[in-house]
Design a protein around this nucleic acid. Structure first.
Lengths: 341, 341
DNA sequence: CACCATGGCTGAATCGAATCAGCATGATCA
DNA sequence: TGATCATGCTGATTCGATTCAGCCATGGTG
């Protein structure tokens, strides 16, 4: 033992009294195919244990052109104190396949993105996950797709022009779910939506909207209105306050995310309207914030961990990730806000 | 051009009409030392550009035993919709040194931690960052330190028994800052602390407490009380409510984190006490939540991104990371809550 | 008894870069 | 005139695994 250098396959082979070839076959589960005697296999395995042998991945990668590692390139996922659940899900799934994740953040800068992708390619990663903080249309760099060489899966975004494999939340279905919750609460024809998607390529807003209106239409109802505002607390508070000040009289409110829900709660509170009694509220995203509000808001959640792990699973699939867009359902984080007493 | 295989150093050398040795020297900035003619250098660089040559990192790593990659092993950092700023900071710092990050989450399981570290060692990472979601005392696996082979830096935690290099927030100074804010608001002798550290090895609570009491002592004051509760919204709301119901009469409140601040706000609101008018409040962590409260709570922030980047910088330092614990100052995210009208 | 199939193993080449130890060439010096 | 030196470059080896091609027994067949 002692503090010698790490054991190599040659050391293992020597100790087991076989060639490195044989040792390699044994360790790569090709014993059957290569007809290695059981007794020999045992000797090799014993030598491995005794020497605490661990293969050198660099050497292996050089030969096999596989690294058992995946690149996850995101715009702001890791820093978003928010969608990092995607990373966690991806990490767990990768470990299940004995892979590790190389991560990089572009901060939305295409130059950084380009350089990161090159770095990852140099490191011979086996696949790419391109992730977005918000569900949107993205422009995947040509270098990843033009030679169609390395498997790539989009996460929480879809490509603008090509049919690339992607994993996204099923926002339309989520919208339907939200609307049905309010219909069940008896809101009927006085349901409004708070929040309009602020940015050009964003998809969450339009798709949720589509789901909400579709569900209303399906039961012969229509939306009573839209309160446009950016997707943050202050804007939502201001917009809903103005709207209430004009004498509007809501029964059901669909908040496009939990931060908007908080702002809405504040505005309703200012006007002495009680959530869960006077007004039913549902929102989206299912963040911790949703559980902190009083009453807790019923929120249609983004399944971040599942999105992340599904993306990795696609990459690990035999025969490549295909070309489909996979829509994952958005579970309800139930609160007490979606009722009228 | 065409879709040929990737160019190798041999291709570059051939095109430039030199040996691979020479090409290698040129590309590794050893031209001076090896006296390569400027004209030759130009030829090599031209060949590199024309062939779009990129070195194969696996091959290089095999020879040099360096991979230009760092392992970041965390318990829940990536999934905590919270401390992932550490990851982002680390990622940016790593990129600045042309390194990439390999991430892994232990989910608090020592077995997973062990296996992850082995995986990373197999992949010849150049250093380890061991990160914790919450500031605490940790037990660093012996395998990383006993042979003292691979540089390791602790992030947001310190080792229980050995003097390992670490980067942590300066909680004591943060506590002083919080207390002084309330003293400046004129709270004098009626300041209470809300929240007591719930878990065994946690450090944030005790250290913040130490800072708060030290600052009060320094101006001849003492704490008026402690409202014990777990560090979450519901517990804080309940505990502060009970305390107010007993007729207590607060002037200044130090909330141990922003979630406690939210619960405290809710309890104060129930009792028709106004933050920023009747009661001054400061809190810790500086999360987004702090900015959502009305009035916005003054919060002593955890400098997550700086913590992450400092850890990586330590690893990148010539001569190794040393043995010190580096305490990073906690900046104030100012709101309007720390005043009395 | 020649022939071949099978079982069980190994030698040597290979992946792509880094690097040690020299090898020509022409200029400089004694 | 030969020894010395700086200049500018290269051949061969190495890192640690994977893998192609094939070798040597043994025993059964025709």
């Amino acid at each position: 033992m002692s503090t010698r250098r790490k054991a190599t396959l040659a050391d293992v082979a020597a100790r087991a009294g076989v060639s490195t070839t044989t040792a390699s076959y044994v360790l790569n589960a090709r014993s059957q195919q290569m007809r290695i005697a059981t007794e020999t296999q045992d000797r090799v395995h014993r030598a491995v244990a005794e020497l605490a042998y661990r293969p050198n991945r660099s050497a292996r990668s050089l030969r096999t052109r596989k690294t058992a590692s995946l690149a996850v390139i995101s715009d702001f996922v890791a820093s978003g104190h928010f969608a990092s659940g995607m990373l966690a899900g991806a990490s767990v799934a990768a470990r299940a396949h004995d892979h590790v994740l190389l991560i990089g953040e572009t901060q939305g800068d295409p130059d950084i993105e380009h350089r990161l992708i090159e770095e990852m390619l140099d490191r011979q990663v086996d696949g790419f996950v391109l992730a977005s903080l918000v569900h949107r249309v993205a422009d995947v760099p040509r270098m990843l797709t033009d030679q169609a060489t390395i498997p790539t899966v989009l996460l929480n975004c879809v490509d603008r022009s090509r049919p690339l494999p992607a994993v996204v939340p099923d926002e339309v279905e989520g919208g339907r779910l939200a609307a049905r919750l309010l219909l069940d609460a008896g809101c009927a024809d006085s349901i409004v939506v708070v929040g309009q998607d602020p940015t050009a390529d964003a998809l969450a807003g339009p798709l949720r909207w589509e789901g909400v209106t579709a569900a209303l239409a399906a039961s012969g109802r229509r939306l009573a209105g839209l309160i446009p505002c950016d997707w943050n607390v202050g804007e939502a508070h201001a917009a809903v306050s103005r709207w209430l000040a004009e004498g509007a009289h809501p029964r059901g409110m669909v908040c496009m995310n939990d931060r908007i829900a908080l702002g809405t709660y504040q505005a309703l509170d200012d006007h002495r309207l009680r959530v869960g009694r006077d007004v039913a509220v549902v929102s989206f995203d299912g963040t911790e914030l949703a559980t902190w509000l009083r009453p807790q808001v019923s929120s249609v959640a983004l399944p971040f961990a599942e999105l992340g792990s599904a993306a990795v699973e696609l990459l690990m699939r035999e025969g490549g990730p295909g070309h489909e867009v996979h829509r994952l359902s958005m579970p309800l984080v139930a609160g007490e806000s979606a009722q009228l007493e």
